[in-house]
Amino acid sequence: MKQRLILYLMTLWAVLTLNFLLPRMLPGDPLQALLDPQSSTYVFDPATRAALEADYGLDRSLLEQYAGYLVGVFTADLGHSIRLNQPVIDLIRSHLPWTLLLTGSALALASLVGIVIGTEAAWRHRSMWDTSLVTVSVILSNAPVFFTGMVFLIVFGVWLGWLPLSGGRTPFADYSSLLAEMRDYGSHLLLPLVTLTLSLLGGKFLLVRNSMLGVLQEDFMLVARAKGLPAGQLKRRHGLRNAILPFVHHLASHAGFAITGALFIETLFAYPGIGQLIFDSVVVRDYPVIQGVFLVVSLMVLSANLLADWLSYQLDPRLREA
């Protein structure tokens, strides 16, 4: 565990350094271009340009810039947006909750459903159910999430008109009650949530199913059955309890997938999360925002890694020894 922690700290440092070095080292000198009147990315607004110069401090030595950057990061000062001339941290603060809501609920939902149907499919190995679920999962996990999202959008938003097409809430709505407010948020969340859940579900289902199949062939499962334990106990107490270990181990990469998926989905559904933010920023090459989002997302994925590792250690006594 300690080793992993060191690895994550090192990765964190690598992320920070990469984030600092990339804009400065890459060919074409993208930062200088912002301040170069000849360049296509020249920032015209003098106030913004001044803020940029202060944030990046390009006239100082590289080491001083690095120190200033690190101080900035640890004091939650991520610079200013070129597009909006606002502190990046404020932008992230207003967009992040939406993304957390979307990815969090999609992850939870996909995990829950994946575990349940994965277990059952493995238990009924090679039945009709199993076969069709595997087929659907393989196809679902291969379709790009923005494409499935688009299909849902068309079917439920346009054809059936059941759900709102975009946004995180109805603009300028005045809610009569808390319930109405929740319903509005819910109906806006539903389509992105279903899309993201489905795109995550395929992988999760296959993972649980296959590790469960492996566990079912273990000797201890035979012994458990020979002991006269009822089917439910065999399936959950011994089968699933062991099959869940690789699933938990993979939680971190699931979180990575989920965030990637969310970036697309938010763009597609105009959901006001950081995906939306990064998309808007990319169009105008708003580097400080892109960098800030990269940092925050990296931090989220790293925390997910840490959490998954910690959970693994809690659940698997064999790992605790090391």
Binding site: F220, R241, N242, L315, D316, R318
Partner: peptide, 14 residues
């Protein structure tokens, strides 16, 4: 009751 051959893998590891 059955005492199985591979006691090494006969117990649930968790």
């Amino acid at each position: 009751a059955l005492a199985v051959q591979n006691a090494g893998t006969a117990f649930d590891p968790v």
